[in-house]
Amino acid sequence: MTETGVDIVGVRVPSERARDAWEAGRRRHGETGWWPYATSASPEGEAAYHDERGCDAAEWERSVGEVVRQDHDARAASVVVSNFRWSTKGLPFDDEDFLGWRDDYDPDRLAPLLGPAVVGPMPGVPRWATGCSAFFSRTRWVNFVAARGGYEVPVFLPHLYGNPNWFGYDSRCLTPLDDAALLRRWQEQWGAQLFFAAGPYLELVVDRPPLDPRGAAQATTELFAYCGDTVRDAIKAGNGMVRSTMWSLWWD
Score class of each variant (00 low, 15 high):
residue 9 V to L: 04
residue 16 E to S: 12
residue 16 E to I: 09
residue 21 A to W: 06
residue 22 W to K: 03
residue 30 G to V: 14
residue 34 W to V: 10
residue 46 E to V: 11
residue 47 A to N: 01
residue 61 E to G: 09
residue 68 V to R: 13
residue 76 A to S: 04
residue 79 V to S: 03
residue 82 S to I: 05
residue 85 R to M: 15
residue 91 L to F: 06
residue 93 F to G: 09
residue 94 D to K: 05
residue 96 E to A: 13
residue 99 L to F: 12
residue 100 G to I: 06
residue 100 G to M: 08
residue 100 G to V: 05
residue 100 G to R: 15
residue 104 D to W: 09
residue 110 L to W: 12
residue 116 P to F: 07
residue 121 P to H: 08
residue 128 W to Y: 15
residue 129 A to Q: 08
residue 130 T to Q: 10
residue 134 A to M: 02
residue 135 F to W: 12
residue 137 S to K: 08
residue 137 S to Y: 05
residue 137 S to H: 06
residue 141 W to F: 11
residue 143 N to I: 12
residue 146 A to G: 10
residue 146 A to M: 11
residue 153 V to A: 08
residue 155 V to S: 05
residue 156 F to H: 13
residue 157 L to M: 12
residue 158 P to N: 10
residue 158 P to L: 08
residue 164 P to W: 09
residue 165 N to S: 11
residue 172 R to S: 03
residue 183 L to F: 14
residue 188 E to K: 00
residue 195 F to H: 08
residue 196 F to G: 04
residue 201 Y to A: 07
residue 205 V to I: 12
residue 206 V to T: 08
residue 207 D to I: 02
residue 214 R to G: 01
residue 216 A to W: 04
residue 220 T to N: 12
residue 227 C to R: 12
residue 229 D to W: 15
residue 229 D to F: 12
residue 230 T to Q: 12
residue 233 D to A: 07
residue 240 G to R: 02
residue 245 T to E: 14
residue 245 T to V: 11
residue 248 S to R: 10
residue 250 W to S: 06
residue 251 W to C: 03
